[in-house]
Nucleic acid binder design. Structure first.
Ligand code: ATP
Length: 664
DNA sequence: AAGTATGCTATTTTT
DNA sequence: TAGCATACTT
């Protein structure tokens, strides 16, 4: 038995020991909320609760894996606890009850790319007006409707005023898109939640499935949306044993329909629930927390928190550096990281965080040049690259020949085949039923002529061969063989992209089934497939819940962080500020912020001012401004006299921000 | 008629 | 840099 008292403070202990009934744990960053879940799982299992009757819902699958792994370190049975995201759990539910959800057995999960293509296809028929929203915008609008439980009009009125005249058109497009999904057995991300909720309301499912989960825990509850809140309620209904954990000040997914409403209303929905507040911060030194507190205090929405280091840990004050351009910033940081590694620091304890993925590109180039190992989290995912998507669509087609979106992509790989020709071929096979042979025979039938004919014959041959190969890795090899000529033809840099296939093959080889593989590519995309270890480069969003000894927050330009898209929207500005709070509180002992002048982002709006967050009351006083422009890639010191950029420890003042508007 | 080359524009965060 | 509209080519 693990001695809980040695691992947890009193408040944590009371949360862990409240086994029955609803519990709300609400507390600031680094106060040990995740640890509460970990030890509560452990305690339940050690008490003899069947691990498979415990359900742990987290924000990413990785987070669940980490928590359960740690708990399993104390008691191996914990690894049998059911854990994952709402989406991954929902997917499993749909696999089991597909019929009740009105889905065919071989339904497939669309990623955003697929959803966009499907919408475009539904759009072609009606829309002419140039001012009509683009397919990706339509997708966001439709998604917002689902995630925020609003009508198209309401979403438009809130965030897309200029599209209000198209409200009717978008609504009908939405229903055409839904028809398309239903006819073709597709499920998009939002459908997973919608169908999941619908299933959980069915008697059949309640009796057999829900009742097998006797303890439900949800982490990061401040970032759940309305549907997820409902789902949580339904899961907990039979027994009321539900623990939710979160920090309203860390709500950073409002753009995706999440609302801290769920966590704020929890105690109203569950009257008499146990509320646990954790006061002590075990993660960071007090100087870092002082900065975080200043950010919290200057928020419009008052948070009644103040983070206090549990052991009054003192340490370095956060430092701020400015650079003349992105390259200087990258070189300086790369050097600093190299020094840290040379001094024996663990690369896995160095994290570079940024608001948007593109900010990290110069640093990636520089680290690559210096052969420093790093991993990237967030931003463009590996599986979204065109060549990977091509290979995956070939895989999908071999697995399920009624996958219309995969057909479109695969057909268009051929020269001379575009929108119209692929549509023609698809209309021939659309009403096909049966196995691959039926589809192949249509491709070979005399309906097609010339180059198209031979292309389709090759495709038919490949599909029959691949679909009859049971071994997934061997099937994947066939796919690469078929794809190779297209690949080399289409991508000049194909030799650079080749390594990705090796990585993809690894994933394929480790998958239990084609269904599992395809679902996990969509629902739980591998962030990246390169080697483990190395310095961490991550968007702040992807850094949620994590911590490192040294954190470098780069790209502190106003317009980058906070994002310029949010300037006019107070609610989004608050979210940006919460994001700043999240970023700061990832650091254990050292926090460094950097700014670089942008010379040529585009001619209209280079973001050359320092983030307004650094001007917030108390913030400047919590940060040491280091020598400005004192370092540059040429290794020169003090690149000339810049007004207001002088000496050591000088407090940030307005001049510093203003001079940047002038020519440097 | 359909496909493709070219040049313009907008460019966040993610299950 | 990708996606889209437009003009050009087959
Ligand atoms: N009672 C404790 N004694 C010592 N260390 C603790 C205690 N509780 C938590 N910690 C440590 O504090 C750090 C932060 O804990 P944890 O990740 O659980 O915080 P959190 O509240 O989930 O943070 P966040 O809100 O940022 O996700 C971890 O390194 C954890 O091991």
């Amino acid at each position: 038995m693990v001695d809980l008292k040695a691992q947890l403070n009193e408040a944590q202990l009371s949360a862990v020991n409240t086994v029955n009934g609803p519990v709300l744990v609400i507390a600031g960053a680094g106060s040990g909320k995740t640890r509460v879940i970990e030890y509560r799982v452990l305690r339940l299992v050690e008490e003899g609760v069947d691990p498979s009757s415990i359900l742990l819902l987290t924000f990413t699958r990785e987070a669940a894996r980490r928590m359960l792994e740690r708990a399993a370190g104390h008691d191996r049975r914990c690894s049998r606890v059911e854990g994952g995201t709402f989406h991954s759990f929902g997917y499993r539910l749909l696999r089991r009850y597909y019929a009740s959800a009105g889905l065919p057995e071989n339904f497939s999960v669309m990623d955003e790319d697929d959803a966009g293509e499907a919408i475009k296809r539904c759009m072609d028929r009606s829309v002419q007006d140039k001012r009509f929203p683009k397919k990706d915008t339509v997708r966001s609008i439709i998604s917002a409707c689902v995630n925020r439980s609003l009508s198209v009009e309401e979403v438009l009125a809130g965030d897309y005023r200029h599209f209000l005249p198209f409200s009717g058109e978008i609504s009908s497009l939405r229903s055409r898109y839904c028809d398309f999904k239903r006819k073709n057995g597709y499920v998009d991300y939002d459908d997973i939640l919608v169908l999941m909720k619908a299933l959980l309301e069915k008697e059949e499912v309640r009796a057999s499935f829900i009742s097998s989960y006797r303890f439900v825990m949800v982490d990061e509850f401040q970032d759940t949306n309305r549907l997820q809140g409902e789902i949580t309620r339904l899961l907990a209904e039979p027994h009321g044993n539900v623990m939710v954990v979160g920090d309203d000040a860390q709500s950073i997914y409002g753009f995706r329909g999440a609302s801290h409403r769920n966590i704020m209303k929890f105690s109203e929905v569950y009257r008499g629930c146990k509320i646990v507040k954790l006061q002590d911060n075990y993660r960071s030194t007090q100087p870092i927390l002082d900065l975080a507190n200043s950010v919290l205090r200057s928020m419009e929405n008052k948070y009644d928190k103040s983070l206090v280091s549990a052991h009054s840990r003192d340490g370095e004050r956060p430092a701020f550096f400015m650079f003349g351009d992105a390259y200087d910033e990258a070189c300086w940081l790369a050097s600093r990281l190299e020094e840290a590694l040379a001094a024996g620091q663990n690369p896995g304890e160095q994290a570079v965080l940024f608001r948007s993925a593109y900010v990290s590109i110069p640093l990636q180039a520089e680290l690559g040049r210096r052969r420093v190992a790093f991993r990237v989290f967030g931003g463009m995912k590996f599986y979204e690259a065109a060549h990977i998507k091509d290979a995956v669509c070939l895989f999908r087609l071999a697995h399920n020949p009624s996958d219309e979106l995969a057909w479109r992509r695969v057909l268009k790989m051929n020269d001379g085949v575009g929108e119209k020709t692929s549509e023609r071929v698809i209309s021939e096979i659309r009403h096909c039923r049966g196995g691959m042979r039926v589809y192949a025979s249509i491709l070979r039938s005399g309906k097609f002529k010339g180059g198209l004919k031979s292309a389709l014959e090759k495709l038919a041959f490949f599909l029959e061969k691949a679909s009859s190969e049971p071994d997934l890795a061997l099937r994947f090899d066939m796919i690469l063989e078929y794809y190779a000529p297209f690949f080399r033809d289409r991508f000049d840099d194909w030799h650079l992209r080749n390594g990705d296939f090796t990585a993809l093959r690894e994933i394929v080889a480790h998958s239990a089934s084609a269904d599992e593989l395809l679902a996990s590519l969509a629902i739980d995309p591998p962030q990246q497939c390169e080697e483990r270890g190395g310095i961490v480069l991550s968007t702040i969003h992807s850094a949620k819940g994590l911590e490192w000894d040294n954190v470098y927050l780069i790209g502190m330009q106003d317009g980058v962080f906070p994002s310029g898209f949010s300037f006019e929207k107070p609610e989004e500005m608050e979210e940006e500020q919460r994001l700043f709070y999240v970023a700061i509180t990832r650091a254990r002992g050292r926090l460094i912020l950097t700014f670089h002048r942008e010379n040529a982002r585009n001619l209209l709006t280079p973001f050359n001012r320092v983030s307004r967050f650094l001007e917030l009351p108390g913030v400047a006083d919590s940060i040491d401004k280091e020598d400005v422009f004192s370092w540059n890639s040429a290794g020169r010191r003090g690149r000339g006299a810049y007004p207001g950029c002088g000496g050591e420890g000088e407090a940030l003042d307005d001049r510093m921000f203003d001079f940047l508007d002038g020519e440097v």
